[in-house]
Design a protein around this nucleic acid. Structure first.
Lengths: 138, 138
DNA sequence: AAGGTTATTGCAAAAACTTGCAATAAGGTT
DNA sequence: AACCTTATTGCAAGTTTTTGCAATAACCTT
């Protein structure tokens, strides 16, 4: 896979290493259609790499998110889920039934610019999750 | 305290009950200047009510948030923190040093309206946490 | 291709959080 | 004021997430 070596060199450029564990976890994220919980990642990736342990999954997901290869989503109950980086969109999830839809990044662009100039903060997180009540549940 | 009975009747109106545990936890949140972790709440509130247990704190915080008496803040690492409801502002926190500043609600008003009309969702969460890189760390 | 440096992993134990269920107590009713 | 109903709590046991440290293995250098 070409993307594999792409990831590897991205890491090496910053002094990190590509490992079979990281690869297995990246594969799991890539093949998922949506974001996964750490446990789901563990179950998926363990099929590819049976020796994989759970602490490694937690540490790796955090590592991938810090380095821009993965992205976190907040989930109301305070548990992070992860997805592969790349699709620049956001989510709005229903507080009641959990239903979820995508929000295009363009909608937030203006807000981010304003926030950046007002606050002086840079690189404001490009994945946001909003919570509301969906039309069904209203 | 007048607010005490205010809270009590808010709950009773919906068929819930006011208890010494809920009161102790509300006090802890009220006296905090910022949002607290469940453990911090536990430690505070236990001083007022020594018999209090940790599971009760978790359940109560979730309950208070669901009923609008408390508010959750997301914290990057995926752990919820809680604060008393009332101040309508948001936070932006630095991904690197953890520094934190307030963002006025007015800034988001336009976005919320747009999101609501585009998506059909209602009552979009009125507390958002953004993540970025603060001026110091840039 | 072999060796050295050190980022990364696995293991084991700790801490944080959740769940089920029987006992308790809030607050409406008599 | 005593009684009933049932929301709420505490306890104990489970699951999830984190942490420290010694062993391993990327990958740079020779």
């Amino acid at each position: 896979m070409s993307c594999t070596s792409e990831y590897a060199s991205q890491l090496r450029a910053r002094g990190f290493r590509m490992t079979s564990q990281r690869l297995a976890i990246l594969h799991a994220l890539r093949h998922a259609e949506t974001h996964l919980s750490p446990r789901e990642v563990y179950i998926q990736a363990k099929q590819e790499l049976p020796g994989l342990t759970e602490p490694t999954v937690y540490r790796t997901l955090e590592f991938l998110a810090e380095n821009g290869l993965a992205r976190t989503s907040q989930t109301g109950n305070g548990h992070l889920r992860y997805q592969i980086a790349g699709n620049d969109h956001h989510h709005i999830v229903c507080r009641i039934c959990g239903d979820e839809m995508e929000v295009d990044h363009a909608l937030l662009e203006r807000l981010y610019h304003k926030l950046e100039s007002d606050s002086g903060y840079m690189r404001i997180d490009s994945h946001m999750t909003f919570f509301g009540v969906c039309p069904q549940c209203q």
